[in-house]
Amino acid sequence: MLPRQKIAMLIICIFIFIFVLDLVRRRKLREEYSWLWLLTSISLFILVLKYNWLLAITKAIGAVLPTTALFIGALIFLMILSVQFSVRISRLTDQVKNLVQENALLREKIDQTNNSTGCQKS
């Protein structure tokens, strides 16, 4: 890897790392979703510094070029991220369902208390 490529990659990694931390600081991103991004930026940072490790990984997975290994890594990262989102969405769906049900039950109680239908015959 050329020194210029190395520096560019390191800057990108540091940028992602700081950007994610800043999102957490500004409460735009919750801690529970930040770990995967931080872990990825740190992993990339290490692989750029320890290029031999990337070559070793490339050899281990049977890839020809280190870039292929990086692409596979990126794909795995995106897949894990998607699964994490799906898990979270499933939880949110349950929570929304319970809230809508609770809201419906409470609204009915209020209607009964007020003794009004709020409807006129058409």
């Binding site: 929304v96 809508v100 419906a104 609204r107 009915e108």
Partner: peptide, 10 residues
């Protein structure tokens, strides 16, 4: 009837 209304289609 008594009516329980969902705020959106669930």
């Amino acid at each position: 009837a008594r009516v329980l209304r969902h705020t959106s289609n669930m």
